[in-house]
Amino acid sequence: MSESRFTPRVFSGIKPSGGLTLGNYLGAIKRWVDMQGPEFETIYCVVDLHAITVWQDPAELRAATREVAAGMLASGIDPERSVLFNQSQVSQHSELAWIFNCVARMGWMNRMTQWKEKAGKNAEAQSLGLFAYPSLMAADILLYHATHVPVGEDQKQHVELTRDIAAKFNHDYKVDFFPITEPVIEGPAMRVMNLRDGTRKMSKSGESDMERINMTDDADTIARKFQKARTDASPLPEIVDGLEGRPEARNLVEIYASLADITPAEVLARFPGAGWGTFKPALAELAVEKLAPISREMKRLTSDPAEIDRLLARGAERARELAQPILDRTLDIVGMVRG
């Protein structure tokens, strides 16, 4: 199927469950900022409907939704250049998700790696929403005929499911309506790892705050966490192959590369054979330079939740204008009688 007739359009979102970390910034938000421009229309979403697949305290969910929005704005998502909104304000997402629930197959959902990991041995006790949310993710993307989705490796399977749903819908109804969306996976730090254990992903739910850089951390805290990040006894190698089997070293090099917009090889060329007493202070200085202004702006924005709500509502209005014609045409294709 050719995508040439579809407007090049990016969609992606972040779930508001806990605070934003450096992993969210480097693995997602920084890339979204860079994609704003003439090449794509960009649509970015706080996916609060996804958050409630597991229990959320209502007050905490509202606060987290506003904090994620503040983080996106502070990082450079421009509400004039991009459509920025929270998912629950655009009911078309849920409407299209139901149609896709009737297109997707149970076997497809059962194969989702994240379902297997999150449900574990207690799948019977999990919510139906947790099982079916990849169908809602497909609706998030295809509701805007998004042609590209920037994702990390751990979300690639969900974009592949989106492609399967689009292809099956087009085949079943003998139409050429939904695009076959392309995942965009690129850059040196798409999977930022734990600062205390380089084999585990940096997470907002980790046991120790020292494991992660929070987007709300101030300059002193950012510097201290990098200074105390776990490393091994060997100095930096001169070539990337020398990072093999050294997860903590690789993680810090990749973080530096992503913050500096260079490759890991270029990082090693700047610090050939350097010890950690040289490299970690340099990394901390770079991180403070890049992240501290974002932290300060987030604090300013979250002090005025009404302004965040206004921007999200305005973005939701723009999102509905894009979504409704696509949903209307979908309903017509499926055979729904409408006035």
Rank of each mutant, 00 (worst) to 15 (best):
S12N: 13
W115G: 10
P305D: 09
A233L: 12
L236T: 09
L96D: 08
I222E: 08
M112H: 01
E124C: 00
F11K: 03
S208I: 06
E186L: 14
I308H: 01
I222S: 06
A316V: 03
A306L: 14
A323N: 03
P134K: 06
R9P: 05
L301A: 08
M1Y: 14
I180Y: 14
S295H: 05
A28P: 04
K116G: 11
I52T: 15
D172E: 09
S208K: 15
P183A: 08
G315Y: 04
D34Y: 07
P235Y: 13
R230A: 15
S234F: 13
Q114R: 09
M190K: 10
V267Q: 10
P281C: 08
Q114A: 05
N122E: 15
S88R: 01
R62L: 11
H93I: 10
S234G: 07
V159N: 02
E321N: 06
G37Y: 06
V159Y: 03
T7Y: 12
G13H: 12
A284W: 12
V47D: 09
L128M: 14
W108R: 05
A104W: 01
I43H: 01
R212M: 14
P38F: 03
T263G: 06
A260N: 08
L73P: 00
I43W: 02
I99C: 02
W115I: 10
S127W: 00
G273I: 08
I326W: 10
R31Q: 15
I52C: 04
D241P: 09
F177T: 08
A319K: 01
I185R: 06
E211L: 04
L259H: 07
